[in-house]
């Protein structure tokens, strides 16, 4: 072997040693960089695309459903319109029939109204005359009642006077209590009978008055007056009863004293 060459080889080869070295800025690195960026972009686009595709499919499905819904609704609408049209036609027919009937009824009604009006006028006339009649009757009876009441009052007053005299006499003559009592009893029974009679007359008069009022229908004022009179009579009756009670009490007192 050529020794000098061998020595040179020993010197030169190791001096050419280089470290593991890669220039990051070389063209190959640029291409790799582009590749890296494009690969990431591709992944992003693929993923976004799949998302958007799914959304598209969902939207298309939604649109199809809405389209089907729309068609259903359109068909329903058409059916409803047709039904509505036929219903309208029927309704119009009915309306015309009703109109006709209404016209007929109107005619009949107006005729009847006229008849009723006439009848009413006749009734009014009849009732009016009856009311007048009843009013006169009431007046008559009131007059009789008043006279009767007057008479009863007078009689009552007289009796009261007599009774009071008798009571005075009774006071004065205690010894004749039995007779007095007896007389008082008679008086009382008489009074009671009168009271009953008056009560009965009052009730009869009340019945007559009520009957008259019912017949006349418009005699409420008269009724009120009669009621007022009746209440006065009743008050007088009550007072008579009270006097009777007083007398009975006095009688019992006299009996007791005796």
């Amino acid at each position: 072997m050529n020794k000098p060459l061998f020595l040179i080889f020993l010197f030169v080869v190791p001096s050419c040693a280089t470290y593991i070295h890669a220039d990051g800025r070389g063209e190959i690195e640029k291409i790799k960089s582009q590749n890296h960026i494009i690969r990431n972009r591709l992944i992003l686009i693929e993923r976004r695309n799949s998302i958007v595709e799914e959304e598209n499919i969902a939207r298309i499905r939604e649109i199809q459903e809405k389209q089907a819904q729309y068609e259903n609704l359109a068909a329903e609408k058409k059916a409803l319109l047709e039904k509505s049209a036929s219903d309208m036609h029927l309704m119009n027919e009915k309306y015309r029939n009703l109109e006709e009937k209404s016209r007929i009824l109107e005619k009949e009604s107006s005729r009847k109204i006229q008849d009723m009006a006439l009848l009413n006028r006749n009734l009014e006339g009849t009732l009016g005359s009856k009311i007048l009649m009843l009013n006169e009757e009431i007046k008559k009876r009131e007059l009789n009642f008043g006279n009767e009441m007057e008479r009863i009052k007078k009689e009552h007053a007289r009796n009261v006077y007599e009774l009071s005299i008798k009571a005075e006499e009774l006071k004065k003559t205690i010894s004749n209590d039995d007779d007095i009592i007896h007389s008082l009893d008679l008086d009382l029974s008489e009074l009671s009978g009168r009271i009953k009679k008056l009560s009965g007359e009052l009730m009869n008069k009340n019945d007559i008055i009520r009957g008259l009022i019912d017949l006349s229908g418009a005699g409420k004022d008269r009724e009120e007056e009669l009621r007022r009179l009746l209440s006065e009579k009743e008050k007088e009756l009550i007072e008579s009863k009270k006097r009777k009670d007083i007398i009975e009490m006095e009688k019992s007192l006299k009996k007791g004293d005796k």
């Binding site: 990051g24 800025r25 690195e29 640029k30 790799k32 960089s33 582009q34 890296h36 960026i37």
Partner: peptide
């Protein structure tokens, strides 16, 4: 920056 973007 990522090396790829740094390079480019």
């Amino acid at each position: 920056l990522d090396i790829a973007e740094k390079n480019l």
